[in-house]
Lab assay of single mutants.
Amino acid sequence: SASLEDVKTAVLGLLVILQTKLYTLPASHATRVYEMLVSHIQLHYKHSYTLPIASSIRLQAFDFLLLLRADSLHRLGLPNKDGVVRFSPYCVCDYMEPERGSEKKTSGPLSPPTGPPGPAPAGPAVRLGSVPYSLLFRVLLQCLKQESDWKVLKLVLGRLPESLRYKVLIFTSPCSVDQLCSALCSMLSGPKTLERLRGAPEGF
């Protein structure tokens, strides 16, 4: 439990870093931090981490990651405290083949985003970082199938509809809506759902 406290501190630090690096160059920093966060949550489900502190780590990670939004130009952003989304000039939600690297070039400044813009690109060529939603999407499927803490599952179920409104997140990387529907149906009809959940409301 003591070591998990250190892990929790590290994860919180990564969330803060991602919130900053999403809007700064090099964009590969945001890509790497995002991948680290998603990989860490995957390990929770792989090794069945069920301690309360592990659940709190997942809760905080999902609470942040499910706020990711994308505009029509595929640029990622996060809402501010007033709910207004600021889109990044440097990070996009497109999935890119590994051989192309985590970044790609664009020939010049991008068109203005639909929300308040981030800082304008400084040079004639900007390297865009790929932060594909499919990585998070796979972890969300694991959550629906394996999550043991009701608070975490409730958060994910509550945030998913709003995330799905931003269709560009889903359609720019390999996210299977069929698998999502299947996971939701299995969660509702499967007898093991109630068996594994802690803290579920009576009558769920």
Score class of each variant (00 low, 15 high):
residue 26 P to F: 02
residue 11 V to D: 01
residue 20 T to M: 06
residue 158 G to Y: 12
residue 40 H to T: 02
residue 156 V to I: 06
residue 73 L to G: 09
residue 83 G to V: 03
residue 5 E to Q: 08
residue 102 S to L: 13
residue 76 L to K: 02
residue 51 L to P: 01
residue 156 V to P: 00
residue 181 C to N: 03
residue 111 S to Q: 11
residue 160 L to E: 02
residue 87 F to H: 06
residue 11 V to M: 05
residue 192 K to F: 12
residue 111 S to L: 12
residue 1 S to F: 04
residue 31 T to H: 07
residue 142 Q to C: 10
residue 112 P to I: 14
residue 117 P to L: 11
residue 113 P to V: 14
residue 144 L to K: 00
residue 35 E to S: 13
residue 85 V to I: 15
residue 146 Q to K: 12
residue 79 P to C: 06
residue 162 E to T: 11
residue 15 L to M: 15
residue 49 Y to L: 03
residue 189 S to Q: 12
residue 97 E to H: 10
residue 38 V to C: 09
residue 190 G to R: 10
residue 107 S to P: 11
residue 171 F to W: 05
residue 145 K to Y: 14
residue 16 V to F: 08
residue 107 S to N: 13
residue 85 V to Q: 06
residue 106 T to I: 11
residue 103 E to D: 15
residue 182 S to M: 08
residue 176 S to P: 10
residue 111 S to V: 15
residue 128 L to D: 13
residue 54 A to T: 06
residue 128 L to Q: 13
residue 50 T to H: 11
residue 12 L to A: 15
residue 172 T to G: 08
residue 192 K to N: 15
residue 44 H to L: 01
residue 85 V to H: 08
residue 93 C to N: 02
residue 23 Y to P: 03
residue 185 C to V: 07
residue 181 C to H: 04
residue 133 Y to W: 09
residue 50 T to Y: 09
residue 185 C to Y: 07
residue 102 S to K: 09
residue 196 R to C: 05
residue 93 C to M: 03
residue 190 G to Y: 11
residue 21 K to L: 01
residue 32 R to D: 03
residue 21 K to M: 01
residue 2 A to T: 14
residue 74 H to E: 03
residue 76 L to D: 02
residue 29 H to N: 08
residue 57 I to P: 00
residue 178 D to N: 12
residue 144 L to F: 06
residue 47 H to G: 08
residue 6 D to P: 06
residue 182 S to H: 14
residue 157 L to A: 02
residue 172 T to S: 10
residue 185 C to K: 03
residue 199 G to Y: 11
residue 127 R to A: 11
residue 180 L to C: 03
residue 30 A to W: 03
residue 17 I to W: 01
residue 40 H to K: 00
residue 45 Y to A: 00
residue 46 K to R: 11
residue 54 A to K: 01
residue 176 S to I: 05
residue 57 I to R: 00
residue 55 S to W: 03
residue 8 K to N: 09
residue 101 G to Y: 14
residue 94 D to G: 07
residue 197 L to A: 03
residue 162 E to A: 09
residue 169 L to T: 05
residue 74 H to T: 04
residue 108 G to N: 13
residue 117 P to Y: 10
residue 106 T to H: 11
residue 160 L to K: 00
residue 174 P to A: 08
residue 174 P to N: 10
residue 142 Q to T: 12
residue 170 I to L: 09
residue 24 T to Q: 15
residue 27 A to Y: 08
residue 138 R to A: 10
residue 10 A to V: 02
residue 81 K to Q: 13
residue 38 V to P: 00
residue 175 C to Y: 04
residue 33 V to K: 00
residue 13 G to K: 03
residue 26 P to A: 04
residue 112 P to L: 14
residue 161 P to H: 11
residue 19 Q to W: 04
residue 23 Y to K: 04
residue 176 S to Y: 07
residue 53 I to L: 09
residue 162 E to G: 08
residue 192 K to M: 09
residue 93 C to Q: 03
residue 21 K to T: 04
residue 144 L to M: 07
residue 106 T to A: 14
residue 111 S to P: 11
residue 150 W to Y: 07
residue 175 C to R: 04
residue 178 D to Y: 03
residue 20 T to R: 12
residue 189 S to I: 15
residue 3 S to M: 10
residue 157 L to E: 00
residue 84 V to F: 12
residue 178 D to G: 11
residue 92 V to W: 05
residue 141 L to V: 09
residue 113 P to D: 15
residue 49 Y to K: 01
residue 189 S to V: 10
residue 177 V to N: 01
residue 115 G to M: 15
residue 116 P to Q: 11
residue 1 S to E: 15
residue 43 L to P: 00
residue 138 R to I: 05
residue 95 Y to T: 08
residue 43 L to D: 10
residue 2 A to E: 13
residue 90 Y to H: 08
residue 112 P to H: 15
residue 72 S to R: 15
residue 134 S to G: 06
residue 193 T to N: 07
residue 129 G to N: 10
residue 167 K to N: 05
residue 179 Q to I: 06
residue 96 M to P: 11
residue 201 P to N: 15
residue 189 S to E: 13
residue 18 L to A: 05
residue 63 D to N: 11
residue 75 R to Y: 06
residue 78 L to K: 05
residue 152 V to F: 02
residue 127 R to C: 14
residue 16 V to L: 12
residue 132 P to L: 03
residue 90 Y to C: 07
residue 14 L to R: 01
residue 17 I to T: 06
residue 188 L to I: 08
residue 72 S to Q: 09
residue 97 E to R: 09
residue 31 T to L: 10
residue 7 V to Y: 02
residue 191 P to T: 13
residue 95 Y to I: 13
residue 93 C to F: 03
residue 168 V to S: 10
residue 26 P to E: 05
residue 143 C to A: 08
residue 197 L to R: 03
residue 1 S to W: 05
residue 48 S to D: 14
residue 118 G to V: 14
residue 168 V to F: 05
residue 55 S to Q: 08
residue 82 D to R: 09
residue 183 A to M: 06
residue 145 K to E: 15
residue 128 L to K: 15
residue 88 S to C: 02
residue 160 L to S: 00
residue 118 G to F: 12
residue 88 S to D: 02
residue 161 P to W: 05
residue 41 I to T: 03
residue 32 R to H: 05
residue 70 A to N: 04
residue 157 L to H: 00
residue 200 A to I: 12
residue 53 I to G: 02
residue 174 P to M: 05
residue 163 S to P: 06
residue 37 L to K: 00
residue 165 R to Y: 06
residue 116 P to H: 15
residue 97 E to A: 09
residue 182 S to N: 09
residue 112 P to F: 09
residue 201 P to Q: 10
residue 88 S to V: 02
residue 53 I to A: 05
residue 200 A to R: 11
residue 181 C to A: 10
residue 201 P to R: 08
residue 173 S to I: 03
residue 51 L to S: 08
residue 197 L to C: 05
residue 45 Y to T: 00
residue 112 P to D: 15
residue 13 G to N: 01
residue 194 L to M: 09
residue 111 S to A: 12
residue 48 S to M: 10
residue 76 L to G: 02
residue 2 A to V: 08
residue 99 E to V: 14
residue 79 P to Q: 06
residue 162 E to V: 14
residue 9 T to D: 06
residue 137 F to I: 04
residue 129 G to Y: 08
residue 135 L to D: 13
residue 125 A to K: 15
residue 118 G to P: 12
residue 128 L to F: 15
residue 19 Q to T: 07
residue 177 V to I: 09
residue 180 L to M: 09
residue 51 L to W: 04
residue 30 A to S: 07
residue 24 T to H: 15
residue 164 L to N: 00
residue 53 I to C: 07
residue 191 P to G: 13
residue 152 V to G: 01
residue 172 T to R: 04
residue 162 E to R: 07
residue 99 E to W: 10
residue 16 V to Q: 15
residue 1 S to L: 07
residue 177 V to G: 02
residue 138 R to F: 07
residue 43 L to N: 12
residue 31 T to A: 09
residue 46 K to I: 12
residue 139 V to R: 01
residue 5 E to T: 07
residue 157 L to Q: 00
residue 4 L to G: 06
residue 112 P to C: 14
residue 198 R to D: 08
residue 136 L to D: 01
residue 161 P to I: 09
residue 153 L to V: 07
residue 204 F to W: 07
residue 40 H to R: 00
residue 29 H to F: 06
residue 42 Q to K: 11
residue 139 V to D: 03
residue 187 M to Y: 04
residue 68 L to G: 03
residue 12 L to Y: 09
residue 107 S to D: 14
residue 20 T to V: 13
residue 104 K to C: 11
residue 184 L to W: 00
residue 87 F to P: 06
residue 2 A to D: 12
residue 132 P to G: 05
residue 4 L to Y: 08
residue 33 V to R: 00
residue 189 S to Y: 07
residue 187 M to P: 01
residue 89 P to N: 09
residue 22 L to A: 05
residue 104 K to S: 10
residue 101 G to P: 13
residue 151 K to F: 09
residue 190 G to K: 09
residue 132 P to S: 06
residue 76 L to H: 02
residue 20 T to A: 10
residue 99 E to F: 14
residue 137 F to A: 03
residue 189 S to K: 09
residue 174 P to R: 07
residue 11 V to I: 09
residue 51 L to N: 07
residue 14 L to K: 00
residue 173 S to W: 02
residue 179 Q to D: 14
residue 191 P to N: 15
residue 108 G to C: 10
residue 34 Y to D: 02
residue 92 V to R: 08
